[in-house]
Nucleic acid binder design. Sequence first.
DNA 1: CGAAGTTTTGATCAAATTCAAGAGTAGTGG
DNA 2: CCACTACTCTTGAATTTGATCAAAACTTCG
Lengths: 241, 241
Amino acid sequence: MPDETKRTAGPAIYAIDPWVPGKPRVRHQLLSDDERTLLAKIASIVRFNKGEHIYHDGDAADAVFNIINGVVTALAEGEHVMSFLYQGDLFGLSEEGHYSNAARAATSVVAYKIPLPALRRILDKNADLDVDLIVKLCEDLRLAQRHALLLAQKKAATKLAMFLELQEHLQLARGEPALEIYLPMDRSSIAAYLGVTLAALSRAFRTLVSKQIISSRNRHHIKILDRNALNRLADARSNET
Amino acid sequence: MPDETKRTAGPAIYAIDPWVPGKPRVRHQLLSDDERTLLAKIASIVRFNKGEHIYHDGDAADAVFNIINGVVTALAEGEHVMSFLYQGDLFGLSEEGHYSNAARAATSVVAYKIPLPALRRILDKNADLDVDLIVKLCEDLRLAQRHALLLAQKKAATKLAMFLELQEHLQLARGEPALEIYLPMDRSSIAAYLGVTLAALSRAFRTLVSKQIISSRNRHHIKILDRNALNRLADARSNET
DNA sequence: CGAAGTTTTGATCAAATTCAAGAGTAGTGG
DNA sequence: CCACTACTCTTGAATTTGATCAAAACTTCG
């Protein structure tokens, strides 16, 4: 787990270039140092334990969050996992003063909490932040569409393969080494993200392991042994009639 | 089908308020009359026949489109349907000069084609348009997440119920009467949107009809007979353990 | 009317869900 | 440090559901 005491200049918004399979690129910081210190002034630092809810669907929304450290699970109604959020990710988008989804700490989490009114004031003064926001929204949209593509797959093994490739890509984009794929969330969260039951996910893992496509050092560390086979499984086009 | 010869002041971007179940609200126009005439000057009007491709995944992107009339299907790799686009919807978002998905006319379509360079020039001059774009992106994001929620459902009948409620909601938000739900796209597109086969979708329709939850005047016109039953089916929370 | 395309229906098969029990992993406190 | 407990994950067997393949009914359109 990364060093929690790392120095930061303030909130950070990273955006990852769009996913062109096979061409991972590093995400870059959208905010200037000035913007970050500006935001840091109005932000407070908050901590959450693993499993703790950060906010619930429908709660009055008074702030957005920016992850310093840890992993957050974004949930829709009915415990569906919409996305996993990492360092630098921004979450807590609200509609009409209420959060439109729930958020839960998948690991222990440290985050900036940025009060909405203050954020709004700064946004009004800094036209540049608008553009950043657009870039960020585009990225979220791409990820949501990719998630939909994953969910549309019919076989659990295909979904898992797509998930692993996505996680590896995001990991690379974050600048972390990717010899192994690190899966901080637990199996049931992954199952909820893939839209399958825990049992089906477990079987899918076993299938990939027994076919020697992946191996697992432990529950949170996966290694890809046969990338071609994984690609073939994950390629949506090859799984159509 | 709406009147194709309706007068328009130029491109229109509508945004629908977020979907709070049971509280449909009308979408409103984001662009001012000035902005619309400004855009109209640089836009050309294009027509597509039903089934015709508007652009393919990876094509060089030179313009965005704004639907005047008709329905467009947005496709991802492998013929997956990402969304159905209606009058006033904007599409053709590109990454690095290439379209990141494909678009096909689901009915015959009339649209504004707005060249990218000209659009960019106008965007730079009009800061207000940035905000419009953000609102629009938020809406797209919400819809993509809603789609993901639908795709995560395990039973075809549940997916269909959610789809019908979504279509009804969008129809109301567009200001159209909603005594009947109008489904301009064909069954195979709906099946692709729901992530099920044509056969499974057909059976799901039959199930709902035989349970007297819906009735169909013809393939494109559905009427809800038992809204409570439909709600129960479509409610994600009730379909979880 | 006839032909091509779409949708429905049927029968079989494969896969995921469900339910239930067993193995493995923390995490706690003696 | 070990043992105990609670929790997560895996595995198994029975059942349900959707996919698949193929043929029949229905639409659409020339």
